[in-house]
Simulated assay, not measured.
Amino acid sequence: MFALRWIFIVGFNCYVFCYENLSRRPTTVLTQSSTYHAQTASLANDGDVQTDEQHCVHTANNHTKAWLQVDFGEVHSIHNVKIYHRREGNSSGDWKQFRFRQFYLDVSNVSILQTTTSQRNRCYNDKTKYPDLPPNIIDIPCEQTTRYVIVETTYDAPEDDPTTGAILEICEIEVYGCVATCRNNVCDGFGNCYNGCVDGYWGPACELQCPANCEELTCYRTTGNCISCKSGYWEKRCSSRCPIHCFERVCDKTNGSCTRGCASGLYGDMCNRPCSLGCVGGTCDKQSATCANGCVQNWAGSQCDECDSNHYGSSCSLECNHDCENSTCNGTTGLCTLGCKRGFYGYKCDRQCTCCPSGCDRLTGRCNGDCLVGKFGIFCDKACNQGCKVYIRDVH
């Protein structure tokens, strides 16, 4: 019932369905074998169906063959061809379509310049002989899938015209059908495809190709977005490559995140973050960065991204000062975190207390308690006068 509603629309060629006049598509090109005056091939697809001489293609005389070719630029599915030949009235003296006798209508996927009639498919061959005339407007069924439609004649009309040679005077040629990308070759008079598009195309008239990286070249008809992507691509039109470090370069088609894990040594949704140098084998969990096989020597933590308690530095290769308490220090700075062993002071416990039997302050080096006999001062580094008989500690 949907298709039948289109039957009465004026200007479209309708049978059960309406079809588009493919001759009028902007990509269609008409050429002719020769030209008389300025009556070029473009007059035959300008939409003007008047049949007087000035509105018609006119090939030159003194040729044994005359032709007009319609080139769609690519293969389309055609249904019928309607031709308007020159006729200027019904009176006996009016010009009529005698030059149209015995023309033939061929289709081909190869240009007329590269084929002979035997190499083309024939849709129609006029058999009219003098004095009869063929109809000057003729609608020819021609259900073919083709790129070129060719009207050709070798007929000379000496009985009607002293001019010699085969001549065509076509005022308009309408080729009705659908672009080959319409599914089931069904379209309306505007070229819109009723039943959707064949794989690889989208748009109302299925005139647009699906993006090259769509899986099996299939996409949504209304948007051109890919239904799915070829391996290695993502985004609506599969125009973005999956991150290079995704395992087998496979990623989520919506957000580009790696779905099968990462190449060795990397983690994160996009596999763009390096695992810690401290992971055994350099590998870690894609989401948490936890080192599954533990840490290499001198490293610690679930992600093996920090030094153990006895080492420091960017690669945890430097040992804490052994005079740090328990040989423990900050993993970045090397500063002793638990204080110093007895007899040492400083941030890295790399300075020795002097003459302090009870040890010294960890940071300042000041002696705790009395100095050794013969020494005095806050660092117990000053010698008592040899005339002194009793050691008295300087409390200042």
Rank of each mutant, 00 (worst) to 15 (best):
C210I: 00
C210K: 02
C210M: 07
C210E: 01
P211R: 01
N213L: 07
C214S: 00
C214A: 07
C214M: 00
E216H: 14
L217A: 14
T218G: 05
T218F: 02
C219E: 02
C219K: 01
C219M: 06
Y220V: 08
Y220T: 11
R221W: 00
R221M: 09
R221A: 11
I227V: 15
C229A: 03
K230R: 10
S231F: 00
S231D: 14
S231P: 10
G232Q: 08
Y233P: 04
W234E: 11
W234S: 06
W234A: 10
E235K: 09
E235S: 15
S240G: 10
S240D: 07
R241W: 02
C242D: 02
P243N: 10
P243Q: 11
I244G: 13
H245R: 15
C246H: 06
E248A: 15
V250T: 14
C251Y: 08
C251R: 07
D252I: 08
K253H: 12
T254S: 15
T254A: 12
N255L: 04
G256C: 05
G256N: 05
S257H: 12
T259I: 09
R260Y: 07
C262G: 12
G265A: 05
Y267Q: 09
Y267F: 15
Y267E: 03
M270S: 13
N272A: 13
R273N: 13
R273V: 13
P274Q: 11
C275Y: 03
C275H: 04
C275L: 08
S276V: 07
L277W: 02
L277F: 05
G278I: 04
G281T: 01
G281N: 12
G281M: 05
G282C: 08
C284I: 11
K286I: 12
Q287S: 14
S288F: 05
A292L: 15
A292M: 14
N293I: 00
G294T: 06
V296G: 15
V296P: 04
W299N: 11
A300V: 09
A300R: 12
Q303P: 02
Q303I: 07
D305E: 03
E306I: 14
C307Y: 08
C307M: 01
D308L: 02
D308G: 13
S309K: 12
H311S: 11
S314M: 12
S315T: 14
S315H: 09
C316F: 01
C320D: 09
D323E: 13
C324G: 06
C324D: 03
T328G: 13
T328L: 04
T328S: 11
C329P: 02
T332V: 15
T332G: 04
T333M: 09
L335S: 14
L335W: 10
C336Y: 00
T337F: 02
G339M: 06
C340F: 06
F344T: 05
F344L: 07
F344D: 03
G346H: 01
Y347W: 08
Y347C: 00
Y347R: 12
Y347T: 12
K348M: 09
K348S: 06
D350C: 09
D350A: 13
C353L: 06
T354V: 11
